[in-house]
């Protein structure tokens, strides 16, 4: 019962739930700019949650992770994306392959799967945050689903970045975070990835006059 869960863990659970909620909100969001904002919020909550874990477990390296997350995912990347969207004039550019309500139902199914898959793993773990592993996995899956169902490039990139958020949460909840070197490497990767994709967007736009990735289907040899 919940009395058995200490307060610190309760707050971490609360943050994790908010991250899950934001993942769903991103899945449901039709417009580009609010989507990027949601991503920024998710990064912010993730940073706060990491800081909370750091405070409660006295794992000081996690403060660095939290700071990194805050700077990179809540501020820098959303700013880059905002700029991109402005420059590309794709503010209203959004649509998805499957109707949103259907996507949401699939999302619920994914959450059930993720929770159940994560259950045995989290029982092995001894961290106080192990309960959130299921949520982390669910966030990864939901972001994946978002990448699958969207047809425009920017939401896909956001999905990709959100997936990294989920992975980060998983690492924090299962083992109190990855070694600093790995974390820095991933952060750099994400940053470079975002920049490359940004360049890529311009190329797609030059080529097709739109960011609809269904145009890419035409690129195959035939």
């Amino acid at each position: 019962m919940s009395q058995a869960v200490p307060y610190s863990a309760q707050f971490i659970n609360l943050f994790a739930s908010v991250i899950l909620l934001l993942a769903f909100a991103m899945l449901a969001q039709r417009r580009v700019l609010p989507l990027i904002n949601l991503f920024a919020y998710q990064g912010f909550v993730l940073a706060v949650s990491t800081a909370a874990v750091a405070y409660m477990t006295r794992q000081h390296h996690l403060y660095w992770s939290a700071g990194l997350t805050l700077g990179l995912k809540a501020l820098l990347l959303p700013w880059i994306l905002h700029r991109l969207v402005r420059r590309l004039h794709v503010k209203w550019d959004i649509e998805s392959l499957i109707a949103i309500p259907t996507t949401m139902l699939v999302g619920i199914g994914l959450v059930i799967i993720a929770f159940n898959v994560a259950l045995p793993i989290s029982q092995l773990s001894s961290t106080i945050t192990r309960g959130t592993l299921g949520i982390a996995l669910a966030s990864v899956m939901l972001s994946f689903l978002m990448m699958i169902t969207r047809t425009k490039a920017v939401p896909q990139v956001v999905g990709f970045l959100a997936m990294e958020n989920g992975l980060f949460l998983a690492a924090t909840s299962a083992t109190y975070g990855m070694p600093m070197v790995v974390e820095l490497g991933i952060a750099l990767d994400v940053l470079v990835g975002a920049i490359i994709l940004g360049v890529f967007f311009f190329q797609i736009r030059e080529q097709f006059d739109s960011l609809d990735i269904r145009n890419m289907e035409k690129l195959k040899d035939s």
């Binding site: 739930s17 769903f24 619920i108 059930i112 309960g131």
Partner: peptide, 10 residues
Amino acid sequence: LGLLVRLLLE
């Protein structure tokens, strides 16, 4: 979601 979170976390 609330129901599921309840089952998972609490």
